[in-house]
Amino acid sequence: MSVIKVQGLSKNFGAIKAVDQLSFEVEAGQVYGFLGQNGSGKSTTIRMLLSLIHPSQGHIEIFGQSLTDNRSAILEQIGAVIERPDLYPYLTAQEHLTLFAKLRKQKITAAKIEATLTQVGLLSRANDKVQTYSLGMKQRLGIGIALLHDPQLIILDEPTNGLDPQGIADIRQLIKSLSKDQGKTVLVSSHLLSEIEQIATHILIIHQGKKMAEGPTSSLLDPNKTIVQIKTLDDVDAKQKLMASAYSTNLLERTEGLYLTIPKLEIPALNAFIVASNIDLVSLEAKNSLEDYFLQLTSTF
């Protein structure tokens, strides 16, 4: 069953097309990674899913119901953290959770609030004002508010923004747990693709408002399109030699070095060519990750 079904979704801000004919489906229990560079239209799409932004065109169905017609019932089952963890600086974590508990139809007990504070690791600071919190603590509180009413769908927009490595690891663990242990559907967006590839079961890549790729995480990693990074002492010389070879059609040049897209099995042959061509090699590295794939899809070189 599709938890989210988006068809032909577009949003124009004046002449700018922020989202352009976007369609995708998120199935129950998936951790759906929503990838894109900054300004690619991720947040605009997520805000449309939460009815914060009115679509210029298209249709959104969540839990099999039209968002336009059943907004209230749908939002009752969604928990969301959108970009920055913006909260009321003059309220405490306890007060935040108590206030947002009132907004839900179901009765949320004091025990549940305490359990949520424990879950997000803020119990010891529950009565401190948010203005004294670090960014990571605010983000955890934002997630606490999103999870408080036990929603079926959790939407997290750039949840690891600004967090330290430990904070990022904590969030990653939490998302995995929500999906695996509690069977929740999670839509998570980020431009930190290294994070998403570790948690997402499915991925949608968006660029300039358009869908670039969509599918299970494993299927997006094609062994025949392995990106190889070549670091040399003299990139100009190396580039000339590679351009004169059969590798010229596969060559990508970026500021941080030279890249080739070749099947994984041809890497030893490439290594032999470099040695034979007297290129002053520093390192040769296969970058067979989602991030590299994402770069390949969206880079402008």
Partner: peptide
């Protein structure tokens, strides 16, 4: 300005 409007407007209340 605070960014909290989106917290409120994503609740079931219109």
């Amino acid at each position: 300005n605070l960014g909290t409007l989106r917290l409120l407007f994503t609740t079931p209340y219109s």
